[in-house]
Simulated scan of single mutants.
Amino acid sequence: MPRNRQILLDNRPHGEASTTNFRLIAEDTPPLRDGQVLVRHHFLSLDPYMRGRMNEGKSYAQPQPLGQVMIGGTVGEVVESRHPKYQPGDKVQGMGGWQEYSVVDAGQPGALRKVDTTHVPISHYLGAVGMPGVTAWYGLVKIIDPKPGQTVVVSAASGAVGSAVGVLAKARGARAVGVAGGPAKCRYVTDELGFDACVDYKQHRDATSLAGALKEACPGGVDGYFENVGGLVLDAVMLRANAFARIAMCGMIAGYEGHPIPMQHPQLILTNRMRVEGFIVSEHLEVWPDALKELGELVGSGKLRPRETIARGLESAPEAFLGMLRGRNFGKQLVQLV
């Protein structure tokens, strides 16, 4: 059995996370038992939700245990199998964590899923055709539910979730307006993803200024907002929201380091009779087949062209993770292990 390098959560952050919260070790992988498979990971997913799991406080999921492999989505290849459904060479997606190999009880529901790499690159199963894409699909389709001609705004629009939101909105006849940081990301959002407009939040110091830019980009107001950020961007969108606007609350990255996120205009929720709903995509497994089918078709046809930022080598994961939290990535942040 191969030697397996792993990154553990060594201690909990106090304030901002740092590389000292993690520890790299190596150990032999255990022999397989009946029903298990050994997977060599090709790519590891880095996602904002992991920052919340590092804390010990109450959240929607149990904290990441200390001294154990950091949680995370993975794609890779079966190298040994003692389960009849899986053969060496099969490409699979799972939650293998921050390590080079994983031993998986393949009979557990949802533990492992075969993926077809004929038309979709394997890395995209951690992004547009994986959990981030399904997150976008659920928030847009089940909460915002845009009608043709309505305007949908999405923050972190160049990221793995945000990019899919806009393309899915356009497929339903809605206007898609992104909010992203920097001219390069905004050009990608409009030129490659086909959004109708994109606002660079880095050009605005306060919510009033950003709301003015959104007024130009959304002359008919905002009917739906997909929230990934919180803070300044949420305040600005609230000022442009129409009556009966819907907000899908997916992430609040502005507060992931423990900072409070005050809302300047909460009265607008009542004034505009808005629907604000938070969600966790893992609680809605029933939508995954339909979502993945549409997302796979969009990627396969070229209508959704995901961007990826790829760090190389397991040891690069902590720095890449911290960089993602600070907006240094462009698109989906991955670590390539093979």
Rank of each mutant, 00 (worst) to 15 (best):
M1Q: 02
A160Y: 06
L337E: 10
T135V: 09
I71N: 12
S158N: 11
R312V: 08
M249N: 11
E319W: 05
K215V: 05
Q99D: 02
G231Y: 09
D223T: 02
L210Q: 00
P289Q: 02
G327A: 02
D34G: 11
G258E: 11
Q68G: 00
L268T: 14
E192S: 15
L285P: 03
T29M: 15
Q36M: 09
G278E: 04
G251P: 07
M70W: 10
P121I: 00
V287F: 05
A160V: 01
V276S: 00
V79D: 11
E27A: 15
K58H: 11
R326A: 15
Y60S: 03
D145T: 12
G173W: 01
Y201T: 00
G224T: 01
V69I: 14
R246C: 03
V338P: 15
M50F: 04
W98V: 04
Q264V: 03
K58N: 09
I7A: 06
G107Y: 04
A26R: 15
V167Y: 07
A248W: 11
Y201K: 00
R246H: 14
G57R: 09
T118N: 11
Q203D: 07
Y201L: 00
R82L: 12
Q6N: 04
V78G: 14
C218D: 03
A241S: 15
R172P: 05
I25N: 11
S18W: 14
A106V: 03
N242I: 02
G57W: 06
E56I: 05
T20N: 13
E297W: 08
G130P: 08
S316C: 00
V161P: 05
N55E: 15
R187V: 14
P30W: 03
E227Q: 12
V134R: 06
D145C: 07
E286Q: 11
Q333F: 13
N55C: 02
Q336W: 10
D105K: 07
P183S: 13
F22S: 01
V233E: 08
P260T: 06
T271C: 00
P318I: 15
L193Y: 04
V338Y: 06
H14Y: 02
V338I: 06
Q150K: 09
K58T: 12
R82P: 04
K147D: 03
P260I: 02
D235T: 06
L214S: 04
G15S: 04
G182H: 11
Q93M: 15
